[in-house]
Nucleic acid binder design. Structure first.
Lengths: 238, 238
DNA sequence: AGGTCTGTTGCGGGTTCCCGCAACAACTCT
DNA sequence: AGAGTTGTTGCGGGAACCCGCAACAGACCT
């Protein structure tokens, strides 16, 4: 069994390599890449179907690389291994994981045996495994029932790009007023409160983006890839 | 000489400890903290004046902790050691570094001898030292002469919090129109372009925040601490 | 002193945004 | 079937925003 390890931090990389050889005797070869582009090349050339993937990397981040890997080979098993419990990452991953594949999401702070367990569960057994820490974080925030549904999230991303209501409506195929309704519920769920009392009045749009970032509903990587998606969408209609 | 090492990643911490004992024989004791709060306590109790500080940590980030340390003891020497070449961090640091102190900013990707050099220069010799990588990144962006001056940056931060023009004007002691002029030049320098041709119209305010984040002029930590500063400012005037 | 440059401020108007109100469709429950 | 719930859409108005125009002050140069 060949494993591709995608990780730009040398300490984490050598630790992971260590754990890999210790816990998975099935592994015969370990390849190495330090960013998404290298990962895609390596996986293609070496016909890899088991990957341990860091998320935040220069050049091309883990989610984008994973998307390519899965396009070329839908049964690739990928364990994402990240420093951050951002809801944005998990959302990005579940949006692209193919039907018949396996993945896992583990925090780098996870203890060694949990890491071993996850490696076996995902890479060998082909299970889905998500660090409990992330689900926990996903639920806890201020206002009640604050989980965004997919269409709300889509509008949030477009808002974050700086698009105007009309353009969002066009892109997502809703009416202008519907977009604004989505924004309303976004403001609600993200805790964007207008100062009804003597408090500070705010710019809701910017505030929504601020809140989304601070609560880790959105992160900068997500914005960057969303930008590319948008440009692509825009190019494909002239 | 006592050194306080503030770092939440165990691998990086043990690596740094290693380099410390190898390169600085004057070091007699190394204390350890995993977040800003612990760092403040430890520094106070142990009377520390030399610190190696990670930036991104839970609880309380490195810049906030440094501010406290410098308030209590203005000659503390701090080497910031970070994964990120964000202009935002450097700006946050230079805003709080006292007259008669020394600091350094080094990336974690720096090779071992540069690290040794920085440790000696900052902690022992009391020099200022900034990784060249960061200055380089600071200059390269799209539009010409795009370095923000302090007042532009202040407005940018307030914008990022979601404040309205009127409130920014009040807080920064400018007229409303002046704030808007600052915004104008911000839009220019950040490359926020309205679609004069048949292109996509945008919401400039949100777009400005987006650009600032993507170019690493601003980061989420900055927004979080700015939020606290703002609340404090607001509380101090009833 | 005269001239230019840069930064601040007021005014006014066009645009976008926020959102209450109301009509309507689809779906659920009794 | 009737009543209530939820999501979509149009209309309209008040607030905030973007910004051109112009007046003015201070700094610097000749």
């Amino acid at each position: 069994m060949k494993v591709l390890l995608v990780e730009d931090d040398q300490f984490h990389a050598s630790y992971m390599e260590d754990v890999l050889v210790e816990s998975l005797p099935e592994v015969t070869q370990i390849f190495h890449a330090v960013n998404g582009l290298e990962a895609e090349r390596e996986a293609r050339v070496m016909a890899i179907d088991a990957v341990v993937m860091d998320l935040r990397m220069s050049q091309r981040n883990g989610i984008e690389a994973a998307q390519t890997l899965w396009q070329e080979r839908a049964d690739t098993r990928i364990l994402f291994w990240s420093n951050y419990a951002d809801e944005a990452y998990l959302r990005g991953i579940s949006a692209i994981v193919p039907e018949d594949s396996a993945y896992g999401y583990l925090l780098k702070t996870a203890p060694r045996d949990r890491l071993k367990l996850a490696l076996r569960a995902v890479l060998v057994e082909g299970q889905i495994m998500v660090d409990r820490e992330i689900h926990r974080l996903q639920r806890r925030t201020a206002s009640p029932r604050n989980t965004l549904d997919d269409s709300e999230f889509a509008v949030l991303v477009d808002l974050g790009l700086g698009l105007q209501d009309r353009m969002i409506a066009e892109r997502r195929g809703m009416s202008l007023r519907t977009v604004q309704n989505r924004l309303l519920s976004l403001y609600d769920k993200l805790g964007v409160e207008d100062a009804t009392d003597g408090d500070t009045p705010i710019n809701k749009r910017v505030r929504a983006l601020n809140r989304a970032l601070v609560t880790r509903t959105l992160n900068v990587e997500t914005l960057e890839t969303a930008e590319r998606d948008f440009e692509q969408w825009q190019a494909g209609r002239a």
